[in-house]
Amino acid sequence: MIALAYQFDWRVVTDRWPQFVAGAWVDLWVAVVGFSLACAIGLVNALLRTSGMRALSVPSFLYVQVMRGVPLYVMLVWIYFGVANITGITFTSFQAIIITLALTGSGYTTEIFRAGLSAIDRGQMEAARSIGLSRVHTYGHVVLPQAFRIVVPPLGNTFVGLLKGATIMAVIAVPDMVFLANELNVTLFTPFEVFAAVAGILVVLVLFFSALVYLLERRLRIV
């Protein structure tokens, strides 16, 4: 009976539009910071993986399996509640979600960088080495710039995945847009409007970044 009496009241959303934008902004910057860290870890890890030394490549492989195999939600509560309890290091909820995104994301970025690095023809490296470039310069000037073009589209997809994943931060009370929607829902009981607004914002953000990745991919294409 209550359901039949449901009155749509979109003013709940329109009146609080700045709050929703501010909430979405939190999701966005947390995803950006987490993604940047994931890229840094992933690049280092991929270099270890492709180093050819088993002592380095085996731990790197195991790291990827674990990071990709543990659900984001489990990772988040493990870091926020579990690790804090055992080590006494209490992360703020912001730190916890950023670390979670960085760790989970780095599992994916490692594989992407590895694929990018191994797609570069060996001849390129041999040629650079034989004209006297050091190993560091060979990577810095020859291998990485070429690998970069290859990794941009999949990295873009990883970023979109992390942006979606970032919305889980509401469960540890980071005031993002989902947290705001939950708050409004329990105080005003307007679940449809607030969650539709959140879904709408997320669709717009994700489609925007997907389009951006597509454009970047076309620009970077050599042929």
């Binding site: 919305t167 889980i168 469960v171 929607a181 449809f192 969650f195 539709a196 879904a199 997320l202």
Partner: peptide, 13 residues
């Protein structure tokens, strides 16, 4: 484009 958490909230509530 939607995350599972948002789906669940939207569908369930």
């Amino acid at each position: 484009a939607l995350s599972l958490y948002v789906y669940i909230l939207f569908i369930y509530f």
